[in-house]
C-alpha cells in the first residue's frame, strides 16, 4: 500500500470506486459544511475537497478536509498550483498528512482572472505535472523537491485530473501518460457527457497499457436543468456537451428534467461499470449534495464496500 487510504484499499480490492465532492463554504460556516458532508458520508468512498474553486476564496481545502475526517468522510485534499509556491505546497502536504489526510489531487487551478480577486498574482511556480512528481518524490524517496531528506515522509495516494475532450484530442492520451509517469495513482476526469469520445480515449489508454498503472474515474455531473446544460456547453471552457443531451432534457416534462439528468448519469455509470480500463466514477453533484444519497442508490452504488 502506498498510503492506506480508503480509496486505495477499495481499488486494490477490485471494487468499483465511487467518489464525491464537497465544496468548502465561502466563510467559516462549519455547520453548512457538516451538512454537506452528512449527505456524502457512507454513500461515497471518498470526497474531493475543492481548493478555492473557480478562483473564489473559500475555506482552505486542507482545513475543510480535516472537518471531513472528523465527520467520518475520507477527504481527497485538492491542491492547485495557482495559490502556492513549492515551499508552501510541501509544507501543506506534510501538515495534511500529519493530520490524517491520505489522498491528494494535484491540479493547475482555474486562472485567477475568473474569480473574486482578478488582480491577484498567480503563483504557478510549478505545474500540476511537477506537483505530482514532487509529492511522489516526497512519498517514495522521502525527499523534498530540493533534495533534502524528510524525517517522516507523507504517504499520500496521488490523484490528477484529465480532460479527455479538449483539442487536440490525439494529445490527450499522451498527456495522461505523462501524468501516470509523473506519479498519478488515480485520475478523475472532467465531467463526461460525450460517451463516444471517452470510450475512444479509454480504448487508447488501454492500448498504451496505462489503465494497468492508474485507476481512471470518469467524472459524472447530473444535469439539473436545460439551462445548466446549455451553460456547460457554451460557457465552461473545456466542457463537451453533445446536443443529444440537451435535446433529451428538453424532451421531458419541465418538472422531470432533473430526474432525467439523474437517469442519464445512472446510465453512464452503468456503462462505466462494464467498461474495461475504468475503475470507478467520480460524482460531482455541485451544490446538489443532498441528492447524492438518491443518485448513489439509483446508480446501484450502495452499499459501499467496507475494506
Amino acid at each position: 500500500m502506498k498510503s492506506g487510504s480508503n480509496l486505495e484499499k477499495i481499488l486494490k480490492a477490485g471494487h468499483f470506486a465511487f467518489t464525491g465532492e464537497v465544496g468548502p463554504p465561502r466563510g467559516a460556516d462549519v455547520e453548512a459544511l457538516k451538512k454537506k458532508i452528512s449527505f456524502l458520508k457512507g454513500n461515497v468512498d471518498m470526497a474531493n475537497v475543492t481548493d478555492n474553486q473557480t478562483a473564489m476564496v473559500r475555506m482552505s481545502s486542507w482545513a475543510a478536509s480535516l472537518i471531513c475526517l472528523e465527520q467520518g468522510l475520507e477527504p481527497n485534499f485538492q491542491m492547485v498550483c495557482r495559490d502556492r509556491n513549492r515551499l508552501a505546497m510541501q509544507s501543506d502536504i506534510l501538515g495534511a498528512y500529519a493530520h490524517g489526510i491520505r489522498n491528494m489531487l494535484c491540479l493547475s487551478g482555474d486562472h485567477q482572472q475568473f474569480g473574486d480577486h482578478p488582480q491577484a498574482k498567480g503563483v504557478f511556480d510549478i505545474d500540476s505535472m511537477q506537483l505530482l512528481g514532487m509529492a511522489k518524490k516526497m512519498r517514495d524517496e522521502g525527499k523534498f523537491l530540493g533534495g533534502a531528506d524528510i524525517d517522516v515522509a507523507p504517504k499520500l495516494f496521488l490523484g490528477a485530473a484529465a480532460n479527455p475532450f479538449a483539442e487536440p484530442f490525439e494529445w490527450r492520451v499522451h498527456r495522461l501518460a505523462k501524468k501516470v509517469n509523473a506519479g498519478a495513482d488515480f485520475i478523475q476526469t472532467q465531467c463526461v457527457y460525450n460517451m463516444a469520445k471517452i470510450r475512444e480515449w479509454i480504448r487508447q489508454a488501454n492500448d498504451m497499457g496505462l489503465t494497468e498503472k492508474v485507476a481512471i474515474l470518469p467524472g459524472i455531473t447530473p444535469m439539473k436543468s436545460v439551462g445548466m446544460a446549455k451553460y456547460m456547453k457554451n460557457k465552461v471552457p473545456g466542457m463537451d456537451v453533445p446536443d443529444e443531451i440537451i435535446k433529451r432534457l428538453q424532451g421531458v416534462d419541465k418538472k422531470k428534467v432533473a430526474d432525467e439528468g439523474i437517469k442519464i448519469a445512472c446510465e453512464q455509470i452503468a456503462e462505466f461499470k462494464e467498461m474495461k480500463g475504468v475503475s470507478g466514477v467520480h460524482l460531482m453533484a455541485i451544490e446538489w449534495e443532498h441528492r447524492v444519497p438518491e443518485i448513489a442508490e439509483r446508480a446501484g452504488m450502495l452499499p459501499r464496500p467496507e475494506v
Binding site: 493547475s108 487551478g109 486562472h111 505545474d127 500540476s128 505535472m129 480532460n163 483539442e167 498527456r175 471552457p237
Partner: peptide
C-alpha cells in the same frame, strides 16, 4: 501560457483558445 505551464495544455484549453 496564462498559467506559465511547462507541461500543458491545462484542462481549460478551448478549441485552440486559452481558457482566459
Amino acid at each position: 501560457c496564462a498559467k506559465s505551464l511547462f507541461n500543458g495544455p491545462c484542462g481549460g484549453t478551448n478549441n485552440g483558445s486559452c481558457e482566459i
